[in-house]
Simulated assay, not measured.
Amino acid sequence: MNANKILIINGHPDPQSYCRALSTSYAEGARKSGAAVKLIDLSEIEFNPNLRYGYRKRTELEPDLLQAQEFIRWADHLVFVYPTWWGTMPAVMKGFIDRIFLPGFAMRYRDNSPLWDKLLKGKSAHLIVTSDTPRLYNLLVYRQAGHRIMKSNILKFSGVSPVRVTEISPIRKSTETFRQKWLDKVKEMGVKQAR
């Protein structure tokens, strides 16, 4: 599925992270093929990641979150780049999702029904996830729990489909050659997605 409008969300809180470098590489590849690209870097935006009242009481969105919602509405394709920490995404990324993937934006519950409307239909996504856990171990032992939560419980629940996953591991003790190889691969993914 090709996309002309791509939003990249870097979910790593460190502005000097490898995830940031991966986000930049993907953006370069996509722009090279003519896509319009926007980038949200969670290390740079200001917001409270705590959905303090749950859905009982509205918490007003900060300007950066309002802009993030506009970027998501605009995009054909969403790219989430983040590390796996304790089996799932970093707290700042979970807080970002908690705060903006709200009823009325990502989904809408139906009155007197267990069903819901998926409000982000028509968009696709790609998860580029770094990890220290070897891929085979993550698959066989952990059953890719973090990937499944993001793919099914969040994105597909909101109507985003298909959702592709690229896992880059193990990162700890990886060589510069390994990291550069993946930067080049991710740039090519951006090129292909935009074609």
Rank of each mutant, 00 (worst) to 15 (best):
G122K: 09
T166S: 14
G11Y: 05
V186N: 02
K151H: 12
T133F: 04
I171V: 14
E70H: 10
S17G: 02
L61N: 05
K192R: 14
P134V: 06
K187A: 15
N138Q: 14
N2V: 11
V81K: 00
I168C: 09
G54F: 02
Y18T: 03
T84R: 10
V79R: 03
I72E: 00
T59L: 13
L136C: 07
K187E: 14
R52G: 10
S33K: 11
L78F: 01
I40D: 00
I154F: 15
I128G: 03
N48Q: 09
R73P: 06
L65S: 03
T24V: 14
G104C: 12
L22C: 07
N153W: 12
R99K: 14
M107Q: 13
A106D: 01
E176N: 12
F178W: 09
S43Q: 01
S25D: 09
Q67G: 08
F105N: 05
F157V: 07
Y53E: 12
I100E: 04
W85M: 11
G34D: 03
W116N: 10
R143N: 13
D76E: 15
Y26S: 01
T133P: 02
N138E: 15
E44V: 01
V81R: 01
S25E: 13
G54N: 05
L39C: 11
L155Q: 07
L140R: 13
S17K: 01
R179I: 04
G87P: 07
N10L: 00
L119Q: 01
V92F: 10
E167W: 11
K181R: 15
D76C: 11
L22D: 08
P162F: 10
L7M: 00
Y137C: 09
V141G: 09
K187I: 06
P162N: 09
R110Q: 11
A27N: 03
L42D: 05
V160P: 01
A30F: 07
R52W: 09
A30I: 04
H12P: 04
A30R: 02
Y18E: 03
A106Y: 00
G104Y: 10
D117P: 03
W74M: 02
F71N: 15
R58Y: 12
V92P: 06
G95D: 11
V141F: 15
M107E: 13
I171S: 04
G34Q: 02
K123E: 09
I100R: 05
E188R: 14
T133M: 13
A194V: 04
D14E: 11
M189P: 03
F178T: 05
Q67A: 15
F96Y: 15
A30D: 02
I100K: 02
L78N: 02
R108N: 13
T88V: 09
R164Q: 14
M189S: 12
R148I: 10
A35N: 00
L42A: 06
F105E: 07
T175E: 10
Q69L: 10
V81H: 01
I128M: 07
T84G: 12
A27F: 06
L39M: 14
V186G: 07
Y109V: 06
F96P: 09
K57M: 12
K94V: 02
